[in-house]
Design a protein around this nucleic acid. Structure first.
Lengths: 335, 335
DNA sequence: AAATAAAATGTAAACGTTTACATTTTATTT
DNA sequence: AAATAAAATGTAAACGTTTACATTTTATTT
């Protein structure tokens, strides 16, 4: 495998100049640049990233940390990241935390060992201790957070306006003539679920004067117990005609329960989820949802990171607006 | 950050000896080993993987290539790989092909640039040209394939016995009193889908003498056209009482269609999918499926790779047996 | 045309390891 | 106890880049 040395010898130029060509240094004349590039192409030259990393202390690797990879939301983000990073010469290394702080720490330490050039991450639900994140920041490694930033100031992040998402979903139900609203809320420990609920409450209360009533059912456990609690609520409140569920997976379960109670969706009850998961369309009726713009989130986070790798930029927080995706489960049916 | 040099100075031993300690060389006495490790711990020493990679020509990175990361099957494999690799000192780098040969090539070239220590991969559906895979092999980088090996001899691979999977699924239906069997088959270009169909045929034909009849509907397009063809089949063959679908996602669609035709599952028709996807349990009735042992597949592939990294081993092909997961959709209902 | 500034190139050391080979120490055999 | 073999350690070069600093070349100013 040819190295910078051979190229230097053949073109009759020094090592430094060849190196400059590959690092897009402006300090090299167009003529020699072309000559070097030609020879490099002829020799099928590939820069040795390890050597460069060793000398410069920075590798051409971007570390990505997500809670889970098998998840439409995060895999979409990854796709967005890949798209932006792919032709920047950087490599992506993905680590999963499975929502565990210690796995997150392991990943961050890995990144330090690899001298990654930058980090893109969404912190785990469990994470409360930021010392490992601070280590990255202290090592002057640029880091951009997406979806779930830590509670630190002066960090770059790209987040979704979950409050707006909850608001949009609720308003959609109201516009489609629902008057007795129910929000099936997720674990309120999690910030985004709180925001969705608050969005629901804001929309419901805004229209409260015009005969709209609303209630919230917060789910705590996972599994059957929740399902039973919900069923009790449906039994006690047969007039519910609009349901906003905090996530699509649970929305499918809710749909199932409504069917069991012989409630027609969307004729009697309209339903909307959150997340725009792919399985929202597998089931009949297909479930309306709130799209989280995850691909764009990944693209944006990666774009900000790449910019930070080039120049000093002030920390920014970018807030994306979720979008309504209407499907059969919330359609107005003319009677 | 302390390096090998500081440790050498403090312990009064040479660079080489320190290096040997960290590379578990047997050529170092217990006494000095302990002394070195103690000092290393005190200094919070972390080996510089870049330097090691540069000098040795092999990095402590394992490259993993999967078609898609947002997929229960592959993400399970990744989890299995992570579990095995995690405390081996290796880092994992995941690339997706999205079933495209050129993305696969990009990933493989990336791996060469990074001088990965080993590769774990499942080839894309599109891949027919193996030159990039050959490059890896020529570079003497150990490589282990999982689920979809290339048609090359002398390669290590861990695969699933899809034929057996099809057989098990079909026999399960027969045992549960189905006599008019339908197999909804996937694209027969794909080897594993052919195997599943052949397994179905083998099981059905074995019992053909005892009044079992069977038919196959091969799906070609994706989307609505297939659904309509299937519906026509259901209409023309109202006696079908046992259906084996090539995959869980399609199984959900089939269940939907059966419901639309007011056919009760499992009372009138029993249904089983393939893949044991998580959404098989979201819907009512929960769908029986064939588990692909993906986590074990990942663990095995990683184990084989780690062994190859240590010593020369002959290429092996390990065949895993899929397992029946019975749920409500194929239960015998006492009348 | 000489003096100066700017652009382009070159020199050589360094990044932190690994490893072939050499040497010393320790254990084993005669 | 000397001779030999095995185990442990050491020396020094090398992996392929980047980069601070020095030098040369080219362009600009006087």
């Amino acid at each position: 495998m040819a190295g910078i040395k051979e190229i230097a010898k053949i073109t009759g130029v020094s090592l430094a100049t060849v190196s400059r060509v590959f690092n897009q240094s402006p300090l090299v004349s167009e003529k020699t640049r072309e000559r070097v590039l030609k020879v490099a192409r002829d020799l099928d030259y590939r820069p040795n990233v390890m050597a460069a990393a060793l000398r410069s202390g920075k590798s051409k690797i971007i570390g990505v940390i997500v809670p889970e990879v098998n998840n439409l939301f995060f895999s979409g983000i990854i796709n967005g990241i890949e798209r932006i990073v792919s032709d920047s010469g950087f490599h992506i290394i993905i680590s999963q935390t499975h929502e565990q702080q210690d796995k997150e720490n392991t990943a961050l330490n890995s990144f330090l060992e690899l001298n990654v050039g930058g980090v893109l991450m969404s912190i785990s639900k469990e994470t409360e201790d930021y010392t490992n994140i601070q280590k990255i920041i202290e090592a002057k490694i640029p880091i951009v957070f997406f979806d779930r930033p830590p509670k630190l100031k002066e960090v770059d992040s790209v987040v979704l306006d979950d409050h707006l998402g909850g608001y949009i979903a609720t308003e959609h139900l109201i516009k489609n003539n629902c008057t007795q609203l129910l929000h099936v809320a997720g674990n309120q420990q999690v910030g985004i679920f709180r925001d969705r609920k608050d969005g629901f409450l804001a929309a419901a209360e805004k229209h409260g004067t015009s005969g709209i009533s609303h209630m919230v059912a917060e789910l705590k456990t996972t599994g059957n117990q929740d399902i039973q609690r919900l069923d009790a609520i449906f039994k006690a409140n047969p007039n519910i005609d609009g349901i906003f569920v905090y996530g699509d997976e649970m929305a499918i379960q809710v749909l199932q329960q409504l069917k069991n109670r012989n409630l027609k969706v969307p004729e009697q009850v309209k339903l909307i989820g959150f997340g725009n998961a792919n399985y929202s369309t597998l089931i009949q009726p297909q479930i309306s949802s709130i799209d989280q713009e995850n691909v764009m989130m990944g693209e944006l986070a990666a774009t900000i990171l790449l910019k930070k790798l080039k120049e000093e930029v002030k920390p920014t927080t970018k807030v994306l607006s979720p979008k309504l995706v209407q499907r059969a489960s919330s359609k107005v049916v003319s009677t």
